[in-house]
Amino acid sequence: MAIDTQVRPSARTAPSRPWRKVSRRRRKDTIAAVIFLSPQLFGLIVFMLGPLGFALYLAFSHWDGFGTATFAGLSNFTELFDNPRIQRSAINTVWFTVLQVPGVMVTAFLFALFMQKAGKMTSVYRLGFVAPVVTSSVAVATIWLYLFNPDISPVNTALKAIGLPAPNWLQDPSFIIPSFAIVGIWQGLGYQLVMFMAGLQSIGASYLEAAELDGCSAWQKLRHVTVPLLSPTILFLSITSIIGSFQVFDYIYVFMDTNAPDEARTIVYEIVQMAFREFNFGAASALAFLLFLVLLGVTGLQMAAQKRWVHYAE
């Protein structure tokens, strides 16, 4: 899973071949590429870039969902920067991402390692880990509201029993985002586990056996063989899960409905609130545009950093 930003010269266009042939080939290739790309390209333009252009236009307009939009210049953006609630949402979103992404990735990776050793039972265990992915949000909300209710939660009872402070999860401002992150880790684990296990299974045993012959300890094998060989998977998962958790919305909606306190709000929650409850599509679009830029920057950084640590099998 190499995300290379470099276009590598391929053998086909090696300079040893006559130029004319190459250029004809290139034209043929371009035609082939267009044909292969055409369905997705059509979808990209009609169902994504079109609506996106409209949203971008709205970011610089005043529009309440009805009637005509009027030009707003940068006022939507200044409105956002002046709004302390947006700053709070941005902090909440980053905090959620910081807790959830490494949390789910480390747990998924560890469980994938353990499950490798579980033999025939692997697929049975894996079903258990995947169950949260298919559990309906209603059931998720019901159960977690129970687990987060300090009066009746068995978690809190257990915490108190071992002398730890039992938090009021969804009411204590400093615990709301961590609570969401816990649910996010629980629900995201199954998917990442499957991805990591697929990656682990594709690592040749020969590498590990060679390492073993060299007298590597288990830790050294993990550090010098497994992790480097899994690095493309790690990069893919970290890119997609950061994008996903920056866009977290449904947990807040499921647990708090439409009137979440400031301490619980994330950026996409604000976007939806502003657009569909406050009829402020201009500011909502502007905020989405900013989120997009931030994600673009974060992903760009990840791509730039990959050269340092991502190992390509190819």
């Binding site: 909300a141 509201l145 009746i152 499921v254 708090m256």
Partner: peptide, 18 residues
């Protein structure tokens, strides 16, 4: 109850007889 969704705060406990 805090900002829990409508029906999640009291309903469940009331139905549970608590």
């Amino acid at each position: 109850a805090g900002s829990l969704p409508k029906g999640q705060s009291g309903d469940a406990l009331f139905l549970a007889g608590q």
